[in-house]
Design a protein around this nucleic acid. Structure first.
Lengths: 411, 411
DNA sequence: CAATGTTAGTTCTGAAATTAATTAACGTTA
DNA sequence: TAACGTTAATTAATTTCAGAACTAACATTG
């Protein structure tokens, strides 16, 4: 299946018989289906697998033996004998989800049904120091102790972080120092924790979460837009996360929108990121406030570095017209960038995610305005724009999904 | 499988038994594999299908009965008994490929191994008149007679044409008049010819051809660039043509590159198409020559409308510095547009196709220049830019493939 | 509360497919 | 040219699986 298994690189699947192969394929399908659907009857699985009920019965029996699956009791129904529901065993196979951002880091432990059984928000910012990873490992071990999870209850670790993530080599190319020596980031972390480690870009994790459990459920062609340090575009193509050849797909933030613009940290000039990323907005607002801009945000005049994107949005919600103008403008630029992506991807739905969600009132209208202006009208007809409904958990759900789908793929 | 079957819209697969379902799945796989690989031994097919040799033998026997497959004699080999090779029967199941462009129309009949058994270039330009289609039908019927093919030897028709092709409804939204009344274009043509008709955008056909039989063979993430009336971007994602939600994906030509640019026929301002499409280049050269530009092309001064993209490229090949400058510039703009697509798609290969191929000497360098300037450098490392090797047949191969893959999908 | 209808799940049987064994077809070599 | 090595394909055997028949579990109804 995909890539980014941290431990095995090109290990060939052991030469197995045809019947074993088919069985593992089917078991994998069962697990993946139970993972997204929660519970399922034998009859459901039989039609899903194009197999007979007796076959599925023995298949599921085996999965119960290995403690992957558990019976969830009978379903409620109107008439007739009630079917027994099966689901993933939630008492085993916990996964650690580590959400790394430039603001802080969160360590979560989730069960197979994606319930958070433990959460720790730690004051560790993503930076380019090689010490970052070793701190993370010690925080991780502490969390494991606090959560009271034993070694063998945890099966894998998923890490989501911003930056260009080289999928095959599981390295972060934006934060190069994180790759200890020549080893891949994930491989190193894996050696430290003795667990398989899966690395995924934060935007791709978010869109994966939306695709499986959010507003994009069942949709085949999806874009999700996310604003953070940079502008992230998450892409679902034919129902699957689109990574591109090296894992870099969706770098909307580094397309040029202003030839006379500012220098971007990537070295190019006038990238979309220099106009409308969280970092760019903060800088701009801080500059404006310092130079006497009239605004509710002026209360921060003596400590402008306290102004973040959240403060900006809060001010807008309080009716501050300067803040509203800034957000309107950001929305328009975002829409302009989105319009390009729409022309290329022809999505059926666009999901607004991340911190932007709370600014929806102020940016949605100008986003739509820009899209109408810069997109061919035929593209608009079958397309909707929606806000995330997942309350900020899309990224975690997506990271968990990414880990589980990889685990299922290796039977 | 995909969409755009002209005859059946949402017809559900007949409720069939599990064993029948599996058999048709396997037969479909066999056909698809033989289609791209030409010939194949039973052992090959067995590993492909994850089945035993005896099973595959009976499967293939059945396909021979239905005259889809034929034995191709023994393979040559070093030692041991020679395996029998099987391939698609080339004496049956011919497909008509109709290549419609704004310059002319070509009608081809191809056998299952993609050999052209008949070709007719007809003087019919794609235009927005509703009479176009009826002319095409009569040309088509004439060609059928000339080729000496009987009704039942032809199984389907594939039409490639420029424009926005609404996949689900098989309509051409750019050339709206072609859609007779409310019926879809393909459906109407299908009724006239009594064959299933598949409609595909020309750029998508081209990239499909490159993906299956050209330089992009085996590549998963591919972009192909094509210049014609507009700029076409063909996209292969995870090894399959990317259509988008409605079939419009890849409209690179209508992203804005110059806010102060010319009005595009789409209604927007400064689209890439207004700078560097064949139409735009022709217009510009014609204007320049008329107003006294020094160039070999000045021989056309009294009949500038004779200057097409081919004449421009010819002049460049003769060393005309004006023509070379124009092409250099076009390459640079094209590269700038491509850079955006690269940032979003992170392809492993970009293929230069269509009329551009012959201008490669003049545009490749500036394309690369622009890409280096506007792309993150990490994107360049795993990416190559290549010229098509298919001598202009990519589009036909792709159209044929599109038809065949759809036919195989409906067993 | 027995009879009946409905759906689920198990048991059983015949069909189908896998695996193993055998035969076939070829080249090489003694 | 006959024996042997090698690979293919067929036949035989054993296993697996689908489909049907049957049993189980529930609600409703007379």
């Amino acid at each position: 299946m995909p890539f980014s298994d941290s431990l095995l690189e090109d290990e060939l699947p052991a030469q197995q018989s045809v019947v074993d192969y088919k069985k593992s394929q089917k078991q994998r399908k069962v697990l993946a289906h139970l993972y997204v659907n929660g519970t399922c009857t034998l009859a459901n699985l039989a039609t899903l697998l194009h197999s007979s009920v007796p076959s599925v019965t023995s298949l599921v029996d085996e999965l119960i033996q290995t403690e992957w699956v558990a019976s969830m009791g009978p379903a409620i129904g109107n008439n007739g004998r009630r079917p027994v529901l099966f689901g993933l065993n939630t008492k085993r196979n916990f996964v650690a989800v580590i959400d790394v951002s430039i603001h802080d880091t969160k360590i979560l432990f989730m069960d197979t049904q994606r319930h958070i059984v433990f959460r720790d928000d730690i004051d560790l910012q993503l930076n380019n120091h090689s010490s970052f990873l070793s701190s993370l490992v010690s925080y991780f071990n502490t969390a494991l102790l606090k959560a009271g999870l034993s070694e063998d209850e945890l099966i894998a670790v998923g890490i989501s972080m911003p930056g260009l993530i080289d999928a095959r080599r599981a390295r972060n190319l934006t934060y190069k120092q994180l790759n200890q020596t020549e080893e891949s980031l994930a491989r190193w972390f894996s050696a430290e924790t003795n667990k398989p480690v899966y690395l995924i870009n934060d935007t791709k994790a978010t869109v994966l979460g939306e695709s499986r459990f959010g507003g994009a459920q069942g949709k085949k062609q999806v874009l999700s837009i996310n604003i953070d340090w940079g502008i992230g575009l998450g892409i679902i193509v034919n129902g699957e996360v689109f990574h591109g050849a090296s894992g870099f797909a969706g770098e909307l933030g580094h397309i040029q929108v202003d030839p006379d613009g500012e220098l971007c940290h990537c070295g190019k000039i006038g990238c979309l990121n220099t106009c409308t990323s969280a970092a760019a907005l903060e800088q701009r607002v801080q500059r404006d406030i310092l130079s006497g801009q009239v605004s509710k945000l002026a209360i921060f005049k003596d400590s402008v570095d306290q102004i973040g994107i959240t403060e900006l949005i809060d001010a807008a919600h309080q009716g501050d017209s300067y803040a509203i103008d800034i957000l309107h403008e950001a929305g328009y630029l975002l829409g302009k960038g989105l319009a390009i992506a729409i022309n290329l991807f022809n999505p059926e739905i666009i999901i607004i995610d991340g911190v932007l969600t709370s600014a929806a009132n102020f940016i949605l209208s100008t986003i739509e305005q820009a899209i109408s202006k810069y997109c061919l009208s035929d593209f608009r007809n079958d397309m909707t724009i929606e806000l995330t409904q997942l309350n900020g958990s899309a990224k975690w759900l997506g990271t968990h999904t990414y880990v589980m789908e990889n685990i299922f793929a290796n039977h």
